[in-house]
Design a protein around this nucleic acid. Sequence first.
RNA 1: GCAUGGGUAGCCCAACCGGAAGGAGGCACCUGCCUUAGAAGCAGGACAGUGUGGGUUCGAAUCCCACCCCAUGCACCA
Length: 883
Amino acid sequence: MTEERRFPDYEAKWQKFWASRKQPPSEATTPKSDRDFYILSMFPYPSGKLHFGHALPYTLTDAMARFLRMSGYNVLNPTGWDAFGLPAENAAIEKKIHPAKFTYDNIEQMRAQKHAFGYSFDWEREVFTCKPDYYKWTQWIFLRMLEKGVAYRKKARVNWCTQCHTVLANEQVETIVKNGEEYQACFRCESPVVPREIDAWFLRITDYADRLLQGLDRLGDKWPEKVATQQRFWIGRSEGVEIDFTARLKSEHKLTVFTTRADTTFGVTFVALAPEHPLVEQIIAQADAKTAKRLKEFVTEVLMTSEADRAGGEDKEGINTGFKAVNPLNGQEVPIFVANYVLMYGTGAVMAVPGHDERDHEFAKEYRLPIKQVIRADDTEINIQEAAFTEPGTLVNSDKYDGLTTEAAIRQIAADLKAQGKGCVKVNYKLRDWGISRQRYWGCPIPVVHCPSCDIVPVPDNELPVVLPDDVDFLPTGQSPLTLHKDFQKTRCPKCGRQDARRDTDTMDTFVDSSWYFLRYTDSRNAEQIFDRAKCHHWAPVDLYIGGREHAILHLIYARFYTKFLHDIGLIDFDEPFNRLYAHGLIQGESIKVVNEHMNRYVSADELTQLKRSGKAKDDEITRRIEKMSKSKKNGADPTELVAQYGADALRLTILFLGPADADSVWDNHGIKGPYNFLRRWHDSVLQFAPLVEDLPAKPDAALSPVAKTLRHSAHTLVERATGEFNGRLSLNTVIAKGMELVSDIRAFVTAEKLEGPCKGASDPTLANRHALLEAMDILSRAMAPFAPHTAEETHEAIGGKGSVFDRPWPKVDPEALVLDEIELPVQVNGKVRGTIKLPSQADKATMEKLALENANVQKFVEGKAIQKLIVVPGRIINVVAK
RNA sequence: GCAUGGGUAGCCCAACCGGAAGGAGGCACCUGCCUUAGAAGCAGGACAGUGUGGGUUCGAAUCCCACCCCAUGCACCA
């Protein structure tokens, strides 16, 4: 494989050529037209190393962008850096490198890697979320939110990461199982998460819940169903009824519960409160000493575990408070419990109906509480003592509501309660407001000032940005370095002028930075405004957004929320940021674990070969698993190394050849050989055949030979398939396969037609064939250009192409070339293939029938039988039904 | 448990708005040619009947029903 190393050489050549003639997309401020296309891949966190999680989406995006440009679109394909974030700060603490230096060094490296892949990004629009010229506008949006009451401050129980010493959003907490133990962990460092009370900034995303939901419907099939479903579930809209019970403590208190099953109100046998419920405090105060003590202990214990952890817990526990609540519908008194399974959702109190709710049923069994049936199944017998019946049905034991259906009863009961002033219809969401405060340094400062007289005062727009100071100490104390930075904090109150005001030391969640970056790209160098309105509308919204499914809820819901907010304050006309979303799959690796007397750990493939050779690992001691690539599992591969070894084109092709880009796939280092061989075969063949088509005289009128027609058919099929996939599912693997086929067809054609030497002029009898060959090679270069741009340039040049292959238009399908003169068709007798017939492709049904029945083998099978039916599917098959 | 996607040759993948599994293609394998030999290359070849069980149909990998397995995400939200 030594001599083939020339690929990387010509790759460098073309990369230089492209850089020298790069034309940025138009800066036009005209309204967006059909020919303007904004394609975007999610910008990366600059970890310093480009991995497969980047290489796949960028390769896909680049292929698409190149295809679109060749097809005549004015394409915007920017990139940038999601550059704030914890790793930089951790590096600062551990390695004493300033986060800024760490980040910019990483960016340098990754930028070089991106270039090596031959990606055609619009670099002149590059954004860095950590630069003041960007985060000035992140702060500016925050101030607008503050004005509108969308940003607010409240004391809140938050998820605290014990390792990162910071607050995490609910969405950033994962359930992790390690050594059989389940716990709530930080999505980034996997350390345990505990609850904590803290003053924090929130964004009122819940106000947008309904619109976020409706927007999903509008996006329709332009977004993957899976992502839309996940977001709907996350928003978790539920319609129900709030019902006012009366809690009888020493005095009477209103106790409101939320239920989606108001029809089961007659089945209530107890009321359960979340430990956080406001009434719990009073109950403890008024309960007898023994109960109060037990309650206090219980509440403390439950609150110690984080909310998510509580949900994961298996046993339902609770304490009977000794107090009763009155059911407003039937006046019945039921006991009030405080229970661990009740969340601070809705009102934090539930009316428990063990007969028709699984959770209440489980709890009732545990504490021997009555289980009452109030719903009857319409067709089956049910035993409510055994298991809860949670389906809708018909009401029983419910007084005047008996006989109503679930649906009707809910409506009726809600109306009756409302009339009595004891309830109302209510919509609840699982979605919570977005806590954005982080007690960290390397993030966007929150632009507010705390004044002893004026309380919270926004920093005036003309004082933005609030710049992150450089000179800070990084100590592993868990305290934000900004809280130790006296000069940063010390400021004058913008409102009253007091000198002893203090800047807020929180920074924003990095998801805030990435919630609007796609808009900044449209005018990324604008120092006066967040973006020019006209420029923004020339490109935005994004036509195609490409990224991983891991962002299905977090980033994508935040970005949609931000877009709606910016729409509401009149900045933009649209309120959905991404017209089409393409969620690419994950490239996984095969991990190998060896368990025997020598070891119990993951090994790399190379290591395994050695171990097997030395007899230290036997087949039955090896476990192979397909898993996400990770260092600890030793199943990673480094795309940059592979580019150095095989070239960018080979890696790009391999990545796209792995399978449909929206499916998960497994990386196999051997897999690169196929595409690599293809590139060489394509390149070598074109170089070998180029003299055959040099300086050809004009195409003669002579008819094409059948072989030449087959070649044209092959070439135009490639164009048809490529165009179809780019405009559709993006199963680019099939397009590459067709390209491989065309190379074989070209080689076969030259052999079959015995083409040799240069053309002998206009009278050369092979001239028509040579033109067919030239066309095929030309189409091959152009149709493969989006995938293997360097090789496409090289081969395009070899057959006399001037300039760049990307200056050529995307090839057009000649419909005539797709029609073959003669086709072969299978003939079935009673569903089994019994023969084939050859016939002109345009043959009519009668001819097909005639030829089919004349076939000797078919006759053999039909003999002695009566032909009952003839099914003729033009161009596909003929089936003879005979008995 | 729920949601979404998926089970086709030793492996990856194609066909899946029903129509020949001469598998589109690739990896690995085998045979020739080339070579001093190997590697590479060139030409060719072998290998599955589509997770399981039913149904619809002239015809099912494709449509319908039930079940099994894998992947990913969410899981006490009343």
